[in-house]
Design a protein around this nucleic acid. Sequence first.
RNA 1: GCGCCCGUAGCUCAGGGGAUAGAGCAACUGCCUUCUAAGCAGUGGGUCCGAGGUUCGAUUCCUCGCGGGCGCACCA
Length: 580
Amino acid sequence: MTQIYSKIKEIFIESAILALNIERSIFENINFNVEKPHEEKNGEISSNISLLIQKTVKENPIEIAQKISTELLKRDEFIKVEVAKPGFINLWLSTSMWQNHLDETLKLNELIDCNIGKGLKVNVEYVSANPTGPLHVGHCRGAVFGDVISNLLKKTGHVVVKEYYINDAGSQINNLTDSVYIRYQELLGKKFSEYPENFYPGNYLIPVAEHFKIEYADKLLKMSDQDRFSLIKPFTIQYMMGLIKEDLSSLAINQDIFVSEQELVSKGKIEKAIKKLDDAGLIYEGILDPPKGKKPDDWEARPQMLFRSTEYGDDVDRPLQKSNKEWTYFANDIAYHFDKFERGSNHLIDILGADHGGYVKRMTAAVAALTDKKATFSAKLCQMVKLSRNGQQMKMSKRSGEFITLREVVDEVGSDSIRFMMLYRKNEAPLEFDFDKVTEQSKDNPVFYVQYAHARISSVIGKLSENNFDLDLSNYDQCDFSLIANKYEIDLIKKIADWNKVIESAASLQEPHRIAYFLYELSSVFHSLWSQGKIDSNLKFIMPDNKNLTYARIGLLDLTQRTIKSGLDLLGVSAPHEMN
RNA sequence: GCGCCCGUAGCUCAGGGGAUAGAGCAACUGCCUUCUAAGCAGUGGGUCCGAGGUUCGAUUCCUCGCGGGCGCACCA
C-alpha cells in the first residue's frame, strides 16, 4: 500500500457499509473527500462522507457520522475518531500508519504510482514557432509548459509524442527568403537606403547570406528569381531550424518529431483532409458576415469555401480558401491535426499563446468532425510573460528585430531558474518575470529553495562516513522506523504522502504548477525539521551514539530527497548535491 | 457587439463545495562555537471585485453586472 489516502477511503467505504447496512454501489456516484484538514484540531484526516450520503441514506448526517465512527474505532489504524459540526468525521492515525508508509514507500523503485492514462496516446504540440529566426523569450513559457505536460503525462500512463510543427509554407517564409537575398546583396557591396516592409532585420540572417557568398560568390545575382528562391529557401529554413533546436536544447527541451507544413502540402494531405470534410457534408461555398468589431477597411463580401464548424460548436463557419484559391492557414492546420490522428494519437494537445485563444473552437470542431469524435482536441493557453528589470517593464519590438532572445535569458539566469519560474504560475495567469529576482536576489527564487533542500540532504548523507556508520541505503530491511516519532518528522512523512495526489491532480488537470508548489512546500517542511536540530540536538539527523535512530532518520531523508528528485525530474530542473 | 482568460493581504500569486482563506516578497522581532543561516521561529496585514441563485454549507459552481488582458474573414 503506497497511497495512504486511498487506503483510508476504502476503510471509510467498508465501515459505512457495515454501519448503515447499505450497498457498495451507492459510492459509485458519490465522490467523498478523504483529506488533510487545514487545522490540526480537526484531525489528521477528515472526511465529508456522511454529508454527501445523507440524501441517499435519509438520516441526519451527525447520526450517520456517529455510526460510521463506531465502526472506524474498531480498527487499529486509528487512535481517535471525532464527529464534528455539520457531519465531518475527523481521524487521528496511529503513528505506526505513518511509519509504515515511510517504510513501504522507501522500498519502492518508482515513487510515482498513477496510471490515469491507461495507455492513451497523446500528441503534445508545443513551441511551433515560425522558422524565421531564433526563439525569443515569449516562446519559453509554452516551451517549458509543453515539455513538462509531456513528462507528466508519460509518468501517469499516457503514451506521448512531443511534436513541433514547422510553418514553412506561408508567405512569411517568402519574406525570409527575400531578406536573406538582401543580406547577400549587401555582402556583395550593394547599399540599401531602405528595407522592404516585410524585411527580417535581425543579424542572424547575415551568416546565412555569407554561406551563399562563400558557396556561390555572385552567381545568385544572375539566376532567375525562381531558381534563386528555390536555392535559398530550403537552406534558410534548415538553418533557422538549427538555431531553434539549439535554443530548445539550451532549455533542456528535445521534441520527438518535427513536422513540415510544406511536406504535408506536397503530399496532398490538405486535399485529403478537405475531401473528408466534404464527404461529411461539412463544406460549402458561402459569404461570411463582416466581423462585428472593427470592420477591416478592405472588407468586401465574397464567396469562399467554408467549413461548417458551427455544427461542432464554433461561433461562425470558417474559410478554408483565400480569394486567390490558396488554402488558408486553417485548412493546412486541419490537415496537420488529421495527420496527427492518422499517426495514431487519440488526444491532441496544442500549447498556444493566449493570443491564439480565438483558434480553439474551430480546431476543436475540425478534430471532432475529421475523426468522428474518436480523437479529442484540447488547447492549453499560456498567458503572456511580462519581463522586467530594475522595476522597468522591458518592451519587445519584433519589427526592429530588437527582441530579447531565449538564449540571452538562458545565458543570464540559467535553464533551471527559467523552467521553475515558468511553472510557478498557473498557465492561464499572466507571469511576471523579474530578472532581478531570479538572478541577483536569488533567495527570492523558489528554485534555489527546493534545490537547497535536496543539496542539504546530500550533505547530511555525506557526513555519515565521518561517524563511521555503515548503513545500507540501498536496502532498509534492517531499519527500525518505529524510532521515527517526533512531530516534525511525522509532518514530513505526511507531506510526502501527498505526492501521488499532487501528481494525479497535476496530470488530470494538466496543471504542472501544482508540482512546483508541492516541491516548495515539501522543502519547507524539510527545512523546518532541519532547524529543529539546531534548537534541540536530539533532533539532529546524525546521532553519533545511536546508530539505529540515525539509520531511521537517514531513511526519512532518503525518501524526502527521492521525492524532491522525482518532482524536479518532471520539471526538467536539476537536483544538485551541493549549492555553489 | 461577440468569444476566451483573469480579478484573493501593500506587491507577486497559490488554493478551492467544507470548518478560523494561505505562501513568498515588503515591514517588524528573535535564532549561526552545531548535519550548508541560500535556512528557521514569530508579529502585523483580507468586504476572496459587486449583486442575485443553487446548496446543510459558496471565496470556490450558475446567472447578471463592473474592472483588466487577449482575440474577432481573404495573416500565420
